[in-house]
Design a protein around this nucleic acid. Structure first.
Lengths: 210, 210, 210, 210
DNA sequence: CATGAATGAGAATTCATTCAT
DNA sequence: AATGAATGAATTCTCATTCAT
């Protein structure tokens, strides 16, 4: 037997630190927005000293970046799971939307990170960096969903269309409703919105032929 | 004869100044993002001194706010025009999407303002202010589009659905495609995207019954 | 007969302007203090445009300086008058104190200028300039009062003492009471304070020998 | 044994920092005046960075306020000590004046703070704040001295008079001489001025009856 | 390793002064 | 002569980053 890939105690502690700092960053950014989130507040939220953050992240930019990536990876995992089942298309769409909705509800604050992901701020250097690091993630999530749609097309479940365009449209359209739910005081029942979205996407809005 | 509503020369100059400062602010915010846009850079972009901005706007917040309002008013006017025609629903949708697309293409930078509009940053006070000033604008644009959809439902052009939800979904879905076009190096022909969106919305994605 | 020293109309207008700007400056400085008094507020108070002030005064410093001088000249005139009578010393002291009190009551705001006069602010250059222009005025007023005291000493009305020191002490001591009156909501009757001061100065506070 | 009231090392360092910043502030305000004293210059004088000041004082206003309070507390302590002895009235007055003189000579710059204390500047809000924080201090020092005078009256050492008025007069009159000494290039011997003031207050200026 | 005091570059804002009208 | 819009130097305050303990 080969020795199990054993994490040393130090590594475990290190990963724990990294994770709790990222979690703190996520909460603070969500609360205050990208640029109003200060290192001090993140440190306080994480219960560490400001300097400690710099032991694990080169600078503020890297912290934000890594925090993004980490959060997105979580979301991605859930959606992949929903896409991987054998259910019919309508069910799958519902499941995908539900995964998103659940994720955003559990991480209420995260949709702001998600938004920030698409619309970076700051000087040219920061934007280049952001582009290099984060846009591929977004692009990849579009691509994955586009592939999912394409295989549905191939299976004849949905008609043939430009899958990239379609993915973009659906993702952002559903985002809007998810965000609206998250911010609303009394959103409609979850099931209602899920059905609404799935049905809308599948059937469009045209009045039924008589 | 009633006296013509004559603007004094001073008023004209004043309005011109305000407009050029707002235009500059729009370009800079678009380039750098909400919070990285400095008064100095806006002033430089507008070709005036920093202090001059303060002659026309109380402070940075007011400048950003007024800039938002002004840009949104322009966009609103175009969309209203597209909604007011007598064309059949498919044509109208195309026209509305086209108005948006044209606006964002002409004001490439603006979509970031538009995004920022929905996702304000800053401290609690700024967020409250933003909420008070800008969210109603967004909400109103959703409402207008929802009403437009409702009258189409009443005319039997489209089937009955939750018009608010529908408006939200369509607006953000189309935004995504518009934004994608604006950022893409070589977007598909405009007509293709317009047709795609209108047809998608109307018919959904379900494969035609055999 | 030589032609009377006729002021041209222009000169009259000019003097009027200068005076009303100085009056305005006095009111504003009194209200806001030396350094919080802005040219804009002084201009508004005077009912002229900001630029107009610069037609009559080289810069802010000169305006403040001239305003001081002008006000002090008025005060000086009143005190000189009180010192010039033939009354016995107690009466004269009372009259001098009364002149000060009246002046400060009529120009409530002025005591702050008067204070500022003794305790200039600003950078080295401003302080040098202030020293050159304003301190002599204060010094001269002390000197005049010291001379008044000396002649009283020579007439045997008061005993011989260091007249400079004495003048300083009396002037500032009485100022304190005047200022207190000016700021108090319900000061004691004027006569009471005048008698108090004159008697205190003349007789001291020692208990009478039995 | 009760545990000794032990200051932690951090507290000691902190108090030292606060004190040296206040000392620097005192010197700079004295040199340049209330409003011309900039944070940068105070920082330079204290040998710290601008930002450091903000670690110990919320903002400029608080720094100035606390600096006042601290200096006044020192002065108060010395005067209280002089008032608490059993010496006859003439000696006590001399001691009180001497305490003031020593304090102002050691802290040459402070008399300007002291003056500023009575004559605040700035906008309405600053003036209100100043009134709330600093005027009571001045008022209290007058009151303490007035009480001292009243007990002397009750012991029959000095005749009965309005003690508040008297306190005011003496304090400001002596201030004038102290200030004059501090500014003079070659002031008379300290003892001469102390005798002069004590004797003047006690006996007044009236010529002795033959 | 962790800390948090200290730093100073950089941003918003004010206001004396100029100058074209 | 009078105006007041425009200017930009000067000032306050913030916060990412460093480094001695």
């Amino acid at each position: 037997m080969s020795p199990p890939p054993q994490k040393s105690k130090e590594e475990v502690v290190q990963e724990f630190r990294i994770q709790s700092i990222q979690d703190a960053a996520m909460r603070v950014i969500a609360r205050k927005g990208m640029s109003a989130a200060t290192m001090q507040e993140i440190a306080d939220e994480a219960g560490v000293a400001k300097g400690t953050i710099y032991l694990y992240f080169r600078d503020r930019d890297e912290l934000v970046e890594k925090t993004f990536e980490s959060a997105i990876t979580q979301l991605k995992a859930r959606i992949d799971q929903a896409m991987a089942t054998d259910a019919p298309i309508q069910q799958k769409l519902r499941d995908i939307f539900a995964a998103k909705l659940t994720f955003f509800t559990e991480n209420r604050e995260f949709f702001r990170l998600y938004i920030a992901l698409r619309h970076p701020e700051g000087n040219a250097q920061q934007q280049r960096r952001h582009k290099r690091m984060c846009e591929p993630q977004y692009r990849a999530s579009i691509d994955r969903f586009a592939q999912f749609l394409e295989s549905a097309m191939e299976r004849g479940e949905i008609r043939k269309m430009d899958s990239q365009r379609l993915a973009l449209f659906i993702i952002e359209g559903t985002n809007a409703i998810v965000i609206d739910r998250v911010m609303a005081e009394a959103p409609p029942p979850e099931a209602a919105d899920l059905d609404f979205m799935a049905e809308l996407i599948l059937s469009g809005i045209r009045a039924a032929e008589p």
